[in-house]
Computed example of a mutant assay.
Amino acid sequence: MARGSDASGGQRPLAGILWMLLTGANFVAVTAPVKHVGDAVPAPQAAFLRYLPELVFLAPMLGPLPRAGIDRRGLAQYSVRGLAHALGVICWFYAMTRIPIAEVPAMNYLNPVYVTIGAALVFGERLALRRILAIAVALAGVLVILRPGFRELSDGHLTMLFTARFFGASYLMAKRLSECDPAAVVLAMLKRRVTTPPPEATKL
């Protein structure tokens, strides 16, 4: 049963695809500045600064949170999701300063692989043959990018492997939470949990 009255079990695949295309375009817009700054800003501090301005635009969403009726278990779930997402962002920022910019989004294609496998294990979704083939192709593509045994892998490549796992866990938890709360509440809670000033931020 939904905690919020606005939660809906209906699904609109086309709308979801369009929103994900817009999301991808926005991520591309973030990538170039991060690479330009490089390691001049520590990854935890850069992640904090990346989320801080969003609170201005998300302020209207914070109002409904006290009325969302989130119980202690829900708060724990949101906290775990926020931690996983924050670690993913930090790892992503760190990897951006260590490996070529083109390899970051390419390796991040492991993200939907983890989500697809997790959806089958956690939500019991059936994996059609085309999805299994897509996973196999994605894994083969990552091996082509990494070329293990043919070159030395940097810590940035290894970090991107963890990035995809953290983001995959965050998205799976978002799916579960969206069954209980409206999308606005799920998004607002993520921003509240992720936007936590790291120790370096206090020196700004």
Rank of each mutant, 00 (worst) to 15 (best):
A68T: 10
S8G: 03
H157I: 10
L190K: 01
V41Q: 09
A128S: 05
G156Q: 09
V194L: 04
A32K: 14
L75Q: 14
G141H: 01
S178T: 03
F57W: 07
L49F: 08
M1P: 13
F166E: 08
S170K: 01
L58C: 06
P100K: 08
L18A: 13
I17S: 12
I17H: 11
V56G: 02
M1C: 13
N26S: 15
R165Q: 13
W19Q: 11
V137Y: 06
M20S: 00
A128W: 04
A84T: 00
L65Y: 11
A120F: 00
L55H: 01
V186A: 05
V30C: 06
M1G: 13
L110Q: 07
T159K: 04
I17L: 13
S178N: 07
N111H: 14
P198C: 01
P44T: 03
A95T: 07
A138Q: 07
F123H: 03
L153G: 11
L129K: 14
P100Y: 11
M107A: 03
L49H: 01
E54C: 14
A84I: 00
E103F: 09
L139I: 15
R165T: 14
R130E: 03
L87M: 07
A47Y: 02
L58F: 12
M107L: 15
R67N: 13
Q11D: 01
E125N: 03
T159N: 03
E54F: 15
V194Y: 00
W19M: 12
L143C: 12
P105A: 05
A86T: 07
A2Y: 03
L83V: 14
R12H: 15
R67P: 10
Y109S: 07
D71N: 11
W92V: 11
L146E: 05
F162G: 05
I145V: 15
E103Q: 14
A120I: 02
D155H: 08
Y109N: 12
V122G: 05
D181Q: 10
Y171P: 04
H85I: 05
G74H: 02
V56T: 06
L172G: 01
A106C: 04
P13V: 06
L172P: 02
T31P: 08
L139M: 13
L49A: 09
L129A: 15
L161Y: 05
L158C: 01
G168C: 02
F48I: 06
V194E: 00
R151Q: 15
R3P: 01
E103H: 14
A86I: 02
R192N: 09
L52Y: 12
P148S: 11
A2W: 09
M107G: 12
A138E: 04
I101L: 15
E200R: 12
E179M: 14
V30Q: 07
L65P: 13
R131I: 01
A134C: 02
P197W: 08
Y94T: 04
L75A: 14
P66F: 15
A43Q: 03
R98I: 08
K191M: 00
A120Q: 00
A138M: 02
A136R: 12
E179S: 14
S170Y: 06
F48L: 07
F57Y: 00
R73G: 15
L14Q: 03
F57M: 05
L187G: 08
V144F: 10
G82V: 04
P197V: 09
L190N: 00
W19L: 15
